[in-house]
Design a protein around this nucleic acid. Structure first.
Lengths: 159, 159
DNA sequence: GAAAGATTGTTTGATACCAAACTAGTTTGA
DNA sequence: TCAAACTAGTTTGGTATCAAACAATCTTTC
C-alpha cells in the first residue's frame, strides 16, 4: 500500500499542506486521462488557427488514405461510435472537404472521398499534427515503441 | 517512413481491401486517445450501476483525502479546468455527497468536505474502480511503472 | 490607502463523445 | 419467398471537457 509514503503534488490546499493524490496516483486510468487531456488540449491550441477542426484530422486522414470508405468502417477504424461521426461528416461535407457517393449494392450506406480542397487542408493540419507528435516523441524518447504497444493493447483488450 | 509496409486493421472498406491507418498509426496522440476512450467507456459501464457518476470518482476521492480543499486546488490536482468543476461540485453538493464551508480569509472561495454519505458511496465506487484498474494492470503487466512514468511526463511536459 | 493587477469561482458557448431508440435497407433460413 | 434477424446510418439525450468573459474579492505597489 502507499499509506507509508503519501503521494503529493506541489499545489496547496487550504489546510496548508500539499495535495494527497492517494490511491489515484497508482491508477493507470487516472494518468491515462490526464495525459490524453493535456495532449489533446495542446493539439487543439496548435491547430486552432487552421479552419479544419482538430477532431476532423483523424477522420479526414483515414478518408484520404481509404477512398470510398463508409461511415461504419470509418467508425471502427477511428475508434469512435458511428453516432459520433454523423454530425462530423455532415459538417465536413457541408464545408467541401469530403464528398459522398451512393453505393449501388447497399443503399443504406455511402462512400466517402476527400475533395482536393480537403486534401489541401489536411496537408496543412498534418503539419501541425506532426509537430505536436514530434513533441510527444521527444517526451517519450526511446520508449515510444513500448508505449504504442501498451496503448494499442489497452485499446484492444479492455472491455 | 511507413510507405514500405502500409499498416492495416482487419476491418474492410468498400474497395474490398483492409483499412490503411497510414501515418496515424505512428502517432502517440492517436493511440493515446483510443486507449483513453476505451478505458473510460469500460469504466463507465462497470460503474453504471452505482448512483455515483464515474466523473465524480476522482473528485470525491481527492476531497476525501484532502479535507477542506478548494475548487481551484481541486482543479489543479484533478487536471480539469475550474469551469468544469463548477457543475460537478454543484451536483455533488445537491446530492449530499459533499459539503462546502465558507473560508474566513478568502470570501471568494470555499472549503470542500466529503459527507459520511459521500464517503460511503466513494467506497462503493472505489471497488469498481479498483477492479477496472486491475484489468489495466493485467494488460500492461510488468511495464506499469514505465507506463505511469511516461503518462506523467506527457501530462506534465506537453504544452 | 487607493489604484492596478492577480486570483477565484461562475456563466456562456463550443467541441467531443457515447448509448439507446429509431428508420430504412439487406441477408438468412425455413 | 417472405418473415425474422441483422446491419447502416440518424436522432435524441446525456456526460465531459475546455476557453473566454465576467463579477467579486484579494494582493501588490506606489
Amino acid at each position: 500500500m502507499n499509506e507509508a509514503k503519501p503521494l503529493r503534488v506541489e499545489t496547496e490546499n487550504m489546510s496548508g499542506g500539499d495535495i494527497v493524490l492517494g490511491k489515484l496516483d497508482d491508477y493507470i486510468g487516472f494518468h491515462l486521462r490526464l495525459a490524453q487531456n493535456a495532449s489533446f488540449r495542446s493539439f487543439q491550441r496548435k491547430t486552432g488557427q487552421t479552419d479544419l477542426r482538430p477532431g476532423w484530422f483523424a477522420l479526414l486522414s483515414l478518408i484520404k488514405d481509404n477512398p470510398g470508405i463508409t461511415p461504419m468502417t470509418l467508425s471502427r477504424a477511428s475508434g469512435r461510435d458511428k453516432s459520433t461521426l454523423t454530425p462530423l461528416l455532415r459538417d465536413m461535407i457541408r464545408d467541401g472537404f469530403v464528398e459522398k457517393q451512393p453505393i449501388a449494392r447497399d443503399r443504406r450506406s455511402y462512400a466517402l472521398f476527400a475533395t482536393p480542397e480537403g486534401s489541401a487542408r489536411l496537408a496543412d493540419l498534418a503539419r501541425h499534427a506532426a509537430e505536436h507528435d514530434r513533441r510527444l516523441d521527444q517526451i517519450v524518447g526511446d520508449q515510444k515503441a513500448e508505449l504504442l504497444n501498451l496503448l494499442r493493447r489497452i485499446a484492444a483488450e479492455i472491455d
